[in-house]
Amino acid sequence: MRLSCTVNGTPQQVDDVWEGESLLYVLRERMGLPGSKNACEQGECGSCTVYLDGLPVCACLVAAGQAQGREVGTVEGLTPAGAAPGELHPVQQAFLEAGAVQCGFCTPGLLVATDDLVHRSLAEGRKPADAEIREALAGNLCRCTGYEKILDAVRLAADRMAADPTAEAAR
C-alpha cells in the first residue's frame, strides 16, 4: 500500500508498505529515520516513543496504515528546523549535561516523553514535581543509568524551558 503522512513537518510518501508493518518499521526502514528505537517492539519499553498528532505513542504499536494523513514527530525533529549546527533542543542539551545518556538506546523515547511532560506542565503554569516525572516516564525503560541522572536531566530541562517560554513542543 501507499502511505502518506507528515513527519517532523515534512510530507512523506512511501510505496509498497506491507499491511503488517508498524509505524516504527516504516520510519526506520523506509523513511531513513532510525532515531526511534526498536528495543522491545511490544509496547513495553518506550524506546520508540513518537508524537502522533501531538500525543506520545509507542510507534511499534501503531500499524503503519494508522498514520495515514497524520502528523508524526520523532526524535530527529526535536531540534528546530533551521537551528545552527550543534544547537540542541533544551531537553537534548539537559540529557547530555546531566550525564543521562550512557548507551543511549532509551534516550530518543525518553526525550520525546520528557518534551511532552515538560510542555504539559508548563502549559499549566508549573514545573513537574518528582512524583509526576516518575509517573510520566514509568513507561520508558533504561538499563544503564538507574534513572537518577534522567531525573536530573528532566528537572534541568524544565527549569530552562520555564525560563524560555518561546521553546516550542516538537509535536
Binding site: 532510525p34 537534548q92 540529557f95 547530555l96 530518543p108
Partner: peptide
C-alpha cells in the same frame, strides 16, 4: 557520541542499512 545519541543520529547495530 552524546550529541549524535540525543539527536537520534548515532548508528546502532540495528540501524544499519
Amino acid at each position: 557520541d552524546g550529541v549524535l545519541k540525543v539527536r537520534g543520529e548515532f548508528a546502532y547495530s540495528s540501524d544499519l542499512w
